[in-house]
């Protein structure tokens, strides 16, 4: 019997979070009071789906629009166009932001700038409780704060302290606790470990793995480090200049990447092993990532692509499923 609770658990295979044709254009320069100026197409029509309990990795280099995508999903920035549906709720058009934020939480990259320096840890964690769980008594809130701090590896003694008394890794734990205190269902993590030291990075990655189990979370994990993503995420989407160029289950992406950009990206990651390093062949890309302000015509990757042909210059390739669950936006990959 397929019970209702099972359906609620999301085992039906239905997408839990579904993003369709998402766009975010930012105006640039000083707009005059009336006219409209140029726009940067930070996110230009991306679509993906996430099943319950999955961690989707969103990888790309700086300026590819991964962070903007993350913020737009939670409407921390308003999308220009597109549709976001989360657990049956129309995120793009809802007016009930509180209901939305209670379920979907964001974790910021920089634990130094994401905590108000003038607030104690207790007040930082109490803020979402005041907003989302107004009916709770103060002592219940305090119990929940202590409990959440313990889940992320801190103790009740830390409640009265201020952010500057903590190290980077501990601050990121506080930030995680703030996002978790109301038991959200989806977390969008924006490079939560990239500001941390190597030994602390591992602690936070392991913590995220554990929290995902304990809270039954689904996640969108944004990162530039392919190795970190590999350890945490499945499936993985690779972004380049505002678009997804490849999306695939984890094993396939790393073992047989289809898009030439993904291939170059993977080959550029140095491996901490000198023996393997001597054999590694780096596929060096020429030039820099172009500015999203005047993105190249056709396939945005064609000026740097070793395979680029005539059609790549003229037409923009669509994301097509080439193997089951593995799609790439590349003419060459589609017809080898």
């Amino acid at each position: 019997m397929v019970s209702l609770s099972e359906k609620k658990q999301g085992y039906s295979g239905e997408p839990y979070l579904s993003v369709t044709g998402l766009k975010k254009y930012f105006p640039v320069g000083r707009r005059s009071l009336t006219g409209k100026g140029a726009v940067v197409k930070a996110v230009d029509g991306i679509s993906f789906q996430l099943k319950k309990g999955q961690i989707l990795g969103l990888v790309g280099e700086s300026g590819c629009g991964k962070t903007t995508t993350g913020r737009t999903i939670l409407r921390l920035i308003e999308p220009t166009d597109g549709n976001i549906v989360f657990d049956g709720m129309d995120v793009t058009h809802t007016r009930d932001m509180k209901a939305l934020r209670k379920k979907m939480q964001f974790v910021f990259q920089d634990p130094y700038s994401s905590l108000n320096p003038r607030m104690s840890i207790f007040r930082i964690l109490k803020e979402p409780l005041d907003n989302f769980m107004g009916h709770m008594s103060r002592s219940d809130k305090k119990d929940l704060v202590v409990q959440t701090l313990q889940t992320v590896g801190l103790t009740a003694d830390h409640m009265g302290r201020f952010p500057h008394e903590f190290s980077g890794g501990q601050r990121q734990r506080v930030a995680l606790a703030r996002s978790l205190v109301c038991s959200p269902e989806l977390m969008v993590c924006d490079e939560p470990v990239s500001a941390l030291d190597v030994s602390i990075q591992a602690q936070v990655i392991n913590l995220l793995k554990r929290l995902k189990q304990e809270y039954n979370l689904s996640m969108v994990f944004i990162a530039h480090d392919l190795a970190v993503v590999e350890h945490l995420c499945d499936p993985i989407a690779v972004m380049y200049l505002g678009g997804i160029v490849e999306i695939s289950p984890k094993e396939e992406l790393y073992s047989s990447p289809l898009h030439p950009y993904t291939q170059a990206l993977l080959s550029a990651v140095p491996i901490p092993d000198p023996v393997l390093e001597r054999q590694r062949k780096v596929q060096l890309l020429t030039g820099d990532v172009p500015s999203p302000l005047n993105a190249p015509s056709g396939c945005t990757f064609h000026p740097r692509c070793p395979l680029a042909g005539e059609e790549c210059r003229l037409q923009r390739p669509q994301l097509v499923e080439i193997r089951p669950g593995h799609s790439a936006a590349c003419f060459k990959a589609a017809s080898p």
């Binding site: 934020r101 964001f106 920089d110 003038r118 803020e127 979402p128 907003n131």
Partner: peptide, 23 residues
């Protein structure tokens, strides 16, 4: 980022101004 974090934690504009910005 803590201003955005406050919005993420469900606080409205007035609360953000008095709790996070002015202090």
């Amino acid at each position: 980022e803590y201003i955005e974090a406050a919005r993420n934690a469900g606080s409205g504009d007035l609360k953000i101004i008095f709790l996070h910005v002015l202090p």
